[in-house]
Write a protein that binds this DNA or RNA. Structure first.
Length: 890
RNA sequence: GCAGGGGUCGCCAAGCCUGGUCAACGGCGCUGGGCUUAGGACCCAGUCUUAUAGAAGUUCGGGGGUUCGAAUCCCCUCCCCUGCACCA
């Protein structure tokens, strides 16, 4: 057995690719382009299997597209700013920059060892001023436009660490690092006005035809558009108006109380001076203490308290109590909810708990609701009752009618509400893009001068985990006001790292530009033709990136309004049925796999073991199978170092004709499968072809060699997108010039259905013969094969495309529909043999078998006699008897 | 609760859109054999049940329907995963 050192081969070709600068995107904008992009990784320093899968898929696409003549841009980059680096710095008493850069080097080395075909010239980590200065530049433009703005907002604040925490960093209401209780705090924060784009972001989802439905749905839900009505209520005996939002204005006559979110500003005025003020404030404090997660986790139990105040329902003059309840949230709608217990499940539950009245205003068509027996809210449609002039109206119609009535009487208006909220980009952290804003005592909030960019993160920060290090660096904070020139203070908040990833794909098209974030070059490259990454980014990153593209369009930088033409979300990598994770301890280190089996093996396994969008179950056995396959191909090429030449089909015999057919039909199927992201099918096809070519290669005849060469040539090319290193190596072994660069095209003239038919005959017979030979354990001297005319059913290949019409004919002839079940059986019996046999003349069939038999002569080196069973009466006795496979070995 | 995706012959996993080449691709595993001192590797065959068989039977979560014919279409139902979740 031949030994081959895959790791050595891989190193050799990685160097060759690098030396030849093979993957640099070309400047020629006349070429058809393809922009392949993977979601750039956070530089943790180590690749995990998820990365390897992501990149292997993208690389296969990029390589395939290059081979089919596209000018491909396949960039590399790192999402290099962010918390982990800062935490590492705190832990190791170092600084985030050197830690990050070190990690990038390690990660890049691993990516190189996988042989991904990046255009290395695009590499710009987002932590470099050359990149983040453009974050600042864009911020200034967005500030000018009013898209970036500052407002006071409640955030999670850790009093010990003196910093904001992301929701994910709050565990059970406590800081994940120091375990002290996190408090809600109002802080002045920077936002991007993504809500202004809510409608467009929603509408344009329909443009994204090649996005997974799942992702589009998730975004749609996240934006959460809901059309409804804003209704105003007057507080009894007070000069206060309450605004509420509802999608059910049709139930307005059924209101029996109203709830406020505890944080609602009006609440203070409402309870001021009332006898229960203290108690109510206590309740509010308790709710505020709970984290959002805690508050919503229970799900069922609703808590509230009566304010002592009443409001007036304008449609009927009812006076109803005003409550404060934890199930009302400040972030949605107006923070106040009109409660209709009879027709809303939450209101119903709350009303039952606090013994509030329930009033039915919608009756279903079939049965009548009775307040006394009502077990839960009725939320379906029906006809209005107890609703004055609207009685008898269908509730869907009433929604509109009542809203119009409210509008006419200035008691409300139709409105649209979104769940989407503005994007809070302020971070009280060091390792992010400094927000280019200056605070001047005289001029107020002043944007930094564009010419002063970049505002660079200062060195010498101390990372002690207490607050934002930037706040302690005087040289950074102190500056001059760009307007009046007086001493002023710099903003110390930095930007959320999602800002970096919201437009990096644009920077890649023009990453050396020092005048603008990107230039005209992007017009040629954008949109990203294929974006590939994990589904975990379905909302945040992908929504931000879409928003950013639109915002950049509105500040005149581009005409594009959707960045990613096709999105592909790959499945997770599992081990033992669960996600690979450190805590479970089932992580497989890609580095170890690469060292042991080589990058090509890892890539092949990952692409072969599951369809890319499905979950991938890691299997060591599977990896070994992939390795064996590569070894097998390598041996095949090593044994047959011949160059492909032109083929004259007429000179070929049946066997080689068959293999030639298979070669070209495989080219077609592999091409189709890659186009449809079915890499595992494509690879299975290549494997099947390899087996056939290998068998043919065992023959000594020159005739075969031509086809074997063609097969090898094809296999190398087809494998190149998946296992590029070994493909290059084999390409050079057969004397190929340069690098594997051309995708093969299936030649229809070579695809010979008859040849395939012959093969199926031979294959069937061969398996029988082989078995007998193996049973005997010795090479036979002579083999007799008796062929019954109806012998083989496997002539479907030739009948391809015909069965349906044939069946139709049969059905017509026998008027099957009327005969019923009997006919069904009849049709089936017809379909199984006679019908298809008619497609072929029996001579063809016979010839097919006969001409395929040279295989045996070669394989067993014995005499073969083919006896056609129907040649004469006497031969019928020699027809295959039960127990014999129609073959006699002498 | 809402939304999305699934349940296929030991395991992984195709097929379903466009119903009949489906007992159902491929990989793994297992069994037998060839080759070998042996093992590994490699090669061949088998791997739902019955059967001498190229035959038949019973299968694609469960139930029902449409059809001459259903893994595939329709309805109901059970189970699993994923996302969002007291969104008014």
């Amino acid at each position: 057995m031949i030994e081959f050192n895959l790791t050595q081969i891989e190193k050799k070709w990685q160097k060759a690719w690098k030396d030849n600068n093979l993957f640099k995107a070309k400047k020629d904008t006349n070429m058809k382009k393809f922009y392949a992009l993977e979601m750039f990784p956070y530089p943790s320093g180590k690749l995990h299997m998820g990365h390897v899968r992501n990149f292997s898929i993208t690389d296969a696409v990029a390589r395939y597209k290059r081979m089919t003549g596209y000018n491909v841009l396949y960039p590399i980059g790192y999402d290099a700013l962010g918390l982990p680096a800062e935490n590492a710095a705190i832990k190791n008493d170092s600084d985030p920059k050197s830690w990050t850069l070190k990690c990038i080097e390690m990660m890049k080395a691993q990516q190189e060892s996988m042989g991904f075909s990046y255009d290395m010239s695009t590499l710009t980590p987002t932590c470099m001023p050359e990149y983040y200065r453009w974050n600042q530049w864009i911020f200034l433009k967005l500030f000018e436009k009013g898209i970036a703005y500052k407002k006071v907002a409640p955030i999670n604040w850790c009093p010990d660490c003196k910093t904001v925490l992301a929701n994910e960093q709050v565990e059970d209401g406590k800081c994940w690092r120091c375990k002290s209780e996190v408090i809600k705090k109002d802080l002045s924060q920077w936002f991007f006005k993504i809500t202004e784009y809510a409608d467009e972001l929603l509408k344009d989802l329909s443009k994204l035809e090649d996005w997974p439905e799942k992702v589009k749905t998730m975004q749609k839900n996240w934006i959460g558009k809901s059309e409804g009505t804003e209704i105003y209520f007057k507080v009894k005996d007070m000069d206060l108006e309450i605004s509420t939002f509802t999608t059910r204005p049709d139930t307005i006559f059924g209101i029996t109380y109203l709830v406020f979110a505890p944080e609602h500003q009006i609440v203070k005025q409402l309870i001021k001076g009332t006898k229960d003020e203290k108690e109510i404030n206590k309740f509010i404090k308790e709710v505020a203490k709970k984290s959002t997660i805690e508050r919503t986790a229970e799900g069922k139990e609703k808590n509230g308290i009566f304010t002592g105040q009443y409001f007036i329902n304008p449609v009927n003059g009812d006076e109803c109590p005003i409550y404060i309840a934890d199930y009302a949230i400040m972030d949605y709608g107006t923070g106040a909810v009109m409660a209709v217990p009879a027709h809303d499940k939450r209101d119903f539950a709350f009303a039952k708990k606090y013994k509030l009245p329930v009033k039915v205003v919608i009756q279903p068509k079939d049965n009548k609701l009775d307040v006394k027996t009502l077990k839960d809210a009725y939320t379906d449609s029906g006809v209005l009752v107890n609703s004055a002039e609207f009685d008898g109206t269908n509730n869907e119609v009433a929604k509109d009618k009542i809203t119009k009535w409210l509008e006419k009487n200035k008691l409300g208006k139709s409105t649209v509400n979104y769940k989407l909220r503005d994007w809070l980009i302020s971070r009280q952290r060091y390792w992010g893009t400094p927000i280019p804003i200056i605070y001047c005592d005289d001029c107020g909030i002043v944007p930094a001068d564009e010419n002063d960019l970049p505002i660079v993160l200062p060195d010498g920060a101390k990372f002690d985990g207490k607050g934002n290090p930037l706040e302690k660096i005087e040289s950074f904070i102190n500056c001059k006001c760009p307007i009046c020139g007086k001493p002023a203070k710099r903003e110390t908040d930095t930007m959320d790292t999602f800002v970096d990833s919201s437009w990096y794909f644009l920077r890649y098209t023009d990453n050396k530009n020092d005048k603008l974030p990107f230039g005209d070059n992007h017009k040629y490259w954008m949109q990203v033709d294929q974006y590939i990454g994990g589904v975990e980014h379905a909302i945040l990153h992908l929504l931000y990136a879409r928003f950013f593209t639109k915002a950049l369009r509105d500040i005149g930088l581009t005409d594009i309004d959707e960045p990613f033409k096709r999105l592909f979300t790959q499945g997770m990598v599992l081990k033992d049925g669960v996600k690979m994770s450190k805590s479970i301890g089932n992580v497989v280190d890609p580095g170890i796999i690469i060292n042991k089996y080589g990058a090509d093996t890892a890539r092949l396994f990952i692409l072969f073991a599951a369809l890319p969008e499905k979950e991938l179950e890691w299997s060591d056995k599977g990896v070994e199978a992939s390795y064996r396959f590569l070894k097998k191909v390598y041996k095949l090429v090593d044994d047959n170092k011949i160059k492909a030449t032109k083929i004259d089909v007429d000179t070929l015999d049946a066997k080689s004709k068959y293999v030639l057919s298979l070669i070209h039909s495989t080219i077609n199927s592999v091409t189709e499968n890659i186009d449809n992201f079915r890499f595992s099918f494509a690879i299975a096809d290549i494997m099947a072809l390899t087996v056939e070519v290998q068998k043919l290669a065992l023959k000594a005849d020159k005739n075969y060699k031509i086809v074997v060469a063609e097969g090898i040539d094809t296999i190398i090319k087809l494998l190149a997108p998946f296992t590029p290193h070994i493909a290059e190596e084999m390409w050079s072994m057969v004397g190929g010039k340069g690098f594997v660069s051309e995708w093969p095209v299936g030649n229809e003239d070579y695809i010979d259905k008859k040849a395939i038919l012959m093969e199926t005959f031979v294959k069937d017979t061969a398996s029988d013969v082989r078995q007998i030979v193996q049973l005997i354990g010795k090479t036979p001297e002579s083999i007799n094969i008796y062929v019954a005319p109806e012998w083989k059913h496997k002539i479907y290949e030739l009948a391809k495309g015909k069965p349906k019409s044939l069946i139709a004919e049969v059905m017509k002839d026998t008027e099957m529909k009327e005969i019923g079940a009997e006919a069904s059986k009849y049709a089936q019996s017809l379909m199984k043999r006679p019908v298809f046999l008619d497609v072929l003349s029996s001579d063809d069939e016979y010839l097919a078998l006969a001409s395929g038999l040279d295989v045996f002569i070669d394989e067993f080196d014995c005499e073969i006699n083919v006896i056609r069973a129907d040649e004469s009466e006497s031969d019928k006795s020699k027809r295959a008897e039960p127990g014999k496979p129609g073959i006699e070995v002498l």
